[in-house]
């Protein structure tokens, strides 16, 4: 079973994402911000991260760049999932190494579609 780290400062979003991902047979770990997520990755590197952008302490982009520096951090598939729905943000994330990008609001179909595209399903 693959592990997905869900990083979002909204408890509701984490709960919705967990439900969808568990139905897709993922083991889900949660983090409330980038710093917590980085600590979680140092403990155990997940196969993929579903990542919000704007969060306190460390934002999603900063987290991804730090996480990529960790051993095996390059292998992790990062799917942004954010309300930053403009082309500038999308381009910035892709240029920085995001594998996919989900614009909120999302549903199970979009998560399934994106996770399939990046070979997680």
């Amino acid at each position: 079973m693959k592990t997905c780290l869900v990083v979002d400062d909204s408890r509701v979003i984490r709960m919705v994402a967990r439900k969808i991902l568990e139905e897709l047979n993922f083991n889900v770990v949660e983090a409330e911000d980038g710093q917590q997520a980085l600590n979680a990755c140092k403990d155990s590197m997940p196969e993929c991260v579903l990542l919000d952008w704007n969060m306190p302490n460390m934002n999603g982009l900063e987290f991804m760049l730090e996480m990529r520096k960790l051993p095996t951090g390059q292998d992790v598939i990062v799917v942004f999932c954010t309300t930053e729905n403009d082309m500038d943000h999308i381009q910035e994330a892709v240029a920085a190494g995001a594998n996919e990008y989900i614009m909120k609001p999302f549903d199970s179909e979009i998560i399934q579609s994106k996770f399939t595209q990046v070979g997680l399903i």
């Binding site: 729905n85 403009d86 082309m87 999308i90 381009q91 892709v94 995001a98 996919e100 990008y101 989900i102 614009m103 999302f106 179909e109 979009i110 579609s113 994106k114 595209q117």
Partner: peptide, 20 residues
């Protein structure tokens, strides 16, 4: 729509071939 471009279309192709 935003919903339609998120179903099946890789983000790299959205960036390359679409404008908001």
């Amino acid at each position: 729509t935003q919903f339609e471009v998120q179903r099946g279309l890789p983000i790299t192709l959205l960036v390359k071939y679409f404008k908001q």
